[in-house]
Design a protein around this nucleic acid. Structure first.
Length: 487
RNA sequence: GUCUCCAUCGUCUAGUGGCCCAGGACAACGGGUUCUCAUCCCGUCAACAGGGGUUCGACUCCCCUUGGAGAUGCCA
């Protein structure tokens, strides 16, 4: 029994769609859960779509996600090269071999520019799946002449349209398609590059891929690939087709996840304050489950729990709300120092007085945010006290109002002023002392002090924590200003 | 149009003929703890698309309908 070898074969289009990332994740998980190998192959056969720097995005995304490859363009391997454009000659060789084997033919037809609208192709002559000019009927002699004359050509797959092709998919089960609906698809383009349909088969075979993990958009063309494997006399790999990831638009309509549904690329999500590990955890559950109630997993734990049996058939809708929740869970699990360091860039506090207080502040923020991007708004009041009127002091539950607040501040400000250092241990006893002396709920003085310090009804941390971050000077300034306004 | 696939709460899903008047999670709503908010804890709401079979028994198997998705590119 061969060990499992899977691959991730993205096209360098400039960004990593979460659907693609999930495909990579499952392929990686499958390999890792079986001590197998995971290969990265770049499918850049479409010259027109090539985007500068796109390969780097693929590397960095996989790296951030923690998905490491055993073989690939950057770290090599015995089946290289791992970039399809560098394998161009190879495909031509195999295409020609296939022609000899009878599984393909040269086609000299002009490129068909006009689109045929769906529904109006009752024109049987052009919809029998063959090449429009019936190049498949050309004699070997005619082909040689055209080739010698330098006529541009493509190589198409020759399909025997009798019978049907059946195959077994790991997640969808047995699928059978009648050969008469199959087209003589182009294998080698006029520019000499292979199409995905061809390069894929050649490379998967040559690279010893045992399990082909890909989106189910390839389900209906799989029979054509199998016919290719058969024509070459190669072993057909195990197929693992994944259900699609859908998105929901403002009107509630569901369709294939795209930009109009929100951020769909890994890097956008990271920019929006989602943790790579949370994104990975979330997408792992879009179409798979561990057959238990547990939902929060690290990548290593996913590899441990992964099994093909947990794969689902139905398409899944990407839910940003649940992703946010999952992100907050990962945020809470993180070691304090790690959280402080990854959250800092989002806080925008470099060079400000808050920077030295960051570790303390970060801990206060941790349970109050779902994404890192929420940090600036939560700490804005530290930089600048919001405008607020006396009404802010009114709070029913704490039994506080402007008059009470004035009394609280008048009594406490002098006591605070005597403190050398502001922290929970020094500040809280003073506030508690007030509550005890006046026989009121602790919430009353707390509210009054909080409002004058922050102008907000809810803050990360209480008065003592805010004062610790603000420092004595700024705290006293705000408290005095608050009292003055109640004048 | 044709072909293929899919179908459990709003969303992600458990369920492989009796354990299910369907379980978990997110969201929503209500309550408790707490100096605010958040965390945490407890609870409520909420689904087997419809119709036929098969069976002693169907969410689970079969068929049809409906709905959805994908393919039908010298894109991948």
């Amino acid at each position: 029994m061969n060990t499992v070898r899977t691959r991730f074969a993205p096209s360098p289009t400039g960004f990593m769609h979460v659907g693609n990332l999930r495909t990579a994740l499952y392929a990686w998980l499958l390999a890792r859960s079986d001590k197998g190998s995971f290969v990265l192959r770049i499918e850049d056969t479409d010259q027109n779509r090539y985007v500068e720097g796109a390969v780097d995005i693929i590397y960095s995304t996989l790296k951030q996600a923690g998905i490491d490859h055993d073989e690939g363009p950057d770290n090599g391997g015995e089946y290289g090269p791992y970039i399809q454009s560098e394998r161009k000659a190879l495909y031509k060789e195999y295409a020609e071999k296939l022609v000899e084997l009878g599984g393909a033919y040269y086609c000299f037809c002009e490129k068909c520019e006009e689109e045929i609208e769906p529904g109006e192709e009752e024109n049987h002559e052009f919809s029998d799946g063959r090449c429009p000019g019936h190049c498949d009927e050309l004699s070997a002699c005619e082909v040689r002449e055209k080739l010698a004359a330098g006529t541009p050509y493509v190589i198409r797959q020759r399909i025997d349209r009798s019978g049907s092709t059946k195959f077994n998919d790991t997640v969808f089960g047995e699928i059978e398609i009648e050969n008469k609906v199959l087209d003589d698809q182009i294998l080698l383009k006029q520019d000499g590059m292979p199409t995905y349909n061809f390069a894929n088969v050649i490379d998967d075979h040559l690279m010893g891929i045992t399990h082909v993990v890909r989106g189910c958009e390839y389900l209906s063309s799989t029979p054509k690939y199998n016919l290719l494997y058969q024509a070459f006399g190669w072993e057909i790999p195990t197929y693992v087709h994944l259900p699609l990831i859908m998105g929901k638009d403002a009107e509630g309509n569901v369709s294939k996840l795209s930009k109009r549904h929100g951020s769909v690329s890994f890097e956008n999500l990271v920019e929006e304050g989602f943790l790579p590990e949370a994104i990975v955890n979330y997408i792992a559950f879009l179409g798979w489950n561990p057959k238990s109630d547990r939902e929060i997993f690290s990548l290593a734990e996913l590899a441990e729990a992964f099994s093909l049996a947990g794969l689902n058939k139905a398409p899944a809708v990407f839910d940003y709300t649940k992703l946010r929740w999952m992100n907050s869970e990962h945020l809470k699990m993180m070691a304090p120092e790690k959280f402080a360091s990854i959250a800092k860039p989002f806080a925008g506090i470099s060079g400000t007085v808050l920077e030295s207080k960051w570790p303390v502040l970060a801990e206060l923020l941790r349970s109050r945010i779902e994404t890192l991007a929420e940090i600036p708004e939560k700490i804005a009041f530290f930089h600048q006290l919001p405008e607020f009127g006396p009404d802010m002091y009114n709070n029913k539950k704490s039994k506080c109002n402007p008059e009470v607040a004035k009394a609280v501040l008048e009594e406490l400000i002098p006591e605070f002023a005597e403190l050398d250092e502001f922290n929970a241990d020094s500040v809280n006893p003073i506030i508690e002392g007030y509550a005890a002396a006046h026989e009121v709920k602790l919430g009353q003085p707390m509210w009054a002090v909080r409002i004058s310090l922050s102008g907000l009804p809810a803050t990360p941390g209480g008065p003592a924590e805010i004062m610790a971050v603000l420092g004595k000077e700024e705290s006293m300034r705000r408290l005095n200003a608050g009292l003055a306004k109640l004048g």
